[in-house]
Amino acid sequence: MKNSSLNSRTHDLLGSVLGVSALVLLIFSPWLVDTTGPDPFYKGPLVFPLITLGLILAGSVPSLIRLARPGDALWYLDGQGKPFRAARVLGCLVLYLGGLVIFGLEISTLVFLAVALKLVGQDSRAKLILVPLLVTVILTVIFKYSLGIWFPEPLVMQIFME
């Protein structure tokens, strides 16, 4: 049995998911694209999406066939282990986005960096305190004060103000 990416069911599954999604979008595209304009089909907004979805579907055919007839193929990613650490950091990143709305830029950045650094094993006291502080200060100065970017007022602040 081969443990290679070219003979992996994981790759075929991803290809098939993309292919099936494209097929669903292709079927429903006349309803998902507004074609009420006066332009003929070849000038209209639907022609290119149909071609692109057709390309995805065509490219996925080998994956769909291999997934249906797996032969000696295995569920194999890349031999570099399961992505637990990346998944945890990614989870933090999603929470960080929510944190920007609830707690604002400074607190969310500080907490995200501290937690993420701990998760990736960079947990010496100096790194856990200095790096988040430094990065938060730099980001706040650059984005809020130098570039004047507007950040949503933290929901927590609104509650306290009330």
């Binding site: 290809g15 694209v33 304009g37 290119f48 490219g59 994956s63």
Partner: peptide, 26 residues
């Protein structure tokens, strides 16, 4: 196959939103 699929996916991403020529939703 994967190259074609990803190229198609990239093209499709570019079609999402309001079409610049006809102002139709996609």
């Amino acid at each position: 196959g994967r190259g074609i699929m990803l190229l198609g996916l990239g093209f499709w991403f570019s079609t999402v939103g309001i079409d610049g020529t006809t102002l139709s939703e996609r």
